[in-house]
Design a protein around this nucleic acid. Structure first.
Lengths: 138, 138
DNA sequence: CCTTTATTTAACCTGAAGGTTATTTAACCG
DNA sequence: CGGTTAAATAACCTTCAGGTTAAATAAAGG
């Protein structure tokens, strides 16, 4: 078993059946049998997938009579997003522009109504050093 | 081999060695031997890891004499982020607030200098229906 | 209680993932 | 050319993931 949680999460997400289950759960809590229905696969197989998802903290399960309703547990996905953060600059062209936008905005509010400032043309490529805030992370 | 690309990407990311390699490459292009150095592992093992990363479109490799410099290829990570998008609402408390912020801003710009409007206290929880834009996706 | 419904556990099979060492390939360098 | 350095490939081993069927557990309900 992979000891580090992030590996476990990624491993859990590496299966299309499990991602489909998550997609279904994004629509709302539901039972095991209902979750299993779309798949050409035995119920024990689904049960195993759910166990994997649960151990990866991607879902949590309650109990209601003989049913075990599943729902999405946010923490693991949040961690994935956190991991992704440091790589976002490699593809997200909005990454910089959004920051500029927010910075502009902040500046604009400070000098509200005083004069014209800070043109929209931003060219902050390949600027190493300070980290910027992006409003996405807790 | 997993046929769908997303499964391949997640599977590739499910190994701590490979994530460490990516972390190193985030600092800049480098050679296989240099990449291998931090790990208590044979070079062929690293070579295999690199092949996995390459097939998952997480890295690309050039050629420079006898060296094969590796660099990060953004597309696969971008796809992961895209996949995450639909789940972001499950954990990101800024998800709504950022939107409100941008919407407010847009509104504020339209009526620039006309009067006082749109107080900052936004309470848009559990509002189903229309998709909102977040400035992050292409 | 005995039966039905929902789900898990057990035992098993197959293939692939991740590691090893030994051998090749590729390119530079004296 | 022959040696050295960089990296990939081959052949092999062991563990684990994902599936199966058959049996066990849990709770509801006549």
């Amino acid at each position: 078993m992979a000891i580090d949680p992030l590996s476990q999460t990624f491993a859990a997400l590496a299966d299309p059946t499990r991602r489909a289950i998550l997609a279904r759960l994004a629509l709302g809590e539901t039972s095991v049998t209902e979750l299993a229905e779309p798949f050409a696969m035995s119920l024990p197989a689904i049960s195993k997938h759910l166990k994997v998802l649960e151990h990866a903290n991607l879902i949590s399960r309650g109990r209601e009579a003989q049913w075990r309703p599943c729902r999405i547990a946010p923490t693991a996905l949040k961690d994935v997003d956190g991991w992704l953060e440091r790589y976002r600059k490699f593809w997200d062209e909005n990454f910089d522009r959004l920051d500029d936008y927010l910075q502009e905005l902040k500046a604009a509010e400070e000098i509200k109504g005083r004069g014209t400032k800070s043109k929209s043309k931003s060219k902050s490529k390949s600027k190493p050093g300070k980290e910027k805030s992006h409003g996405r992370r807790k």
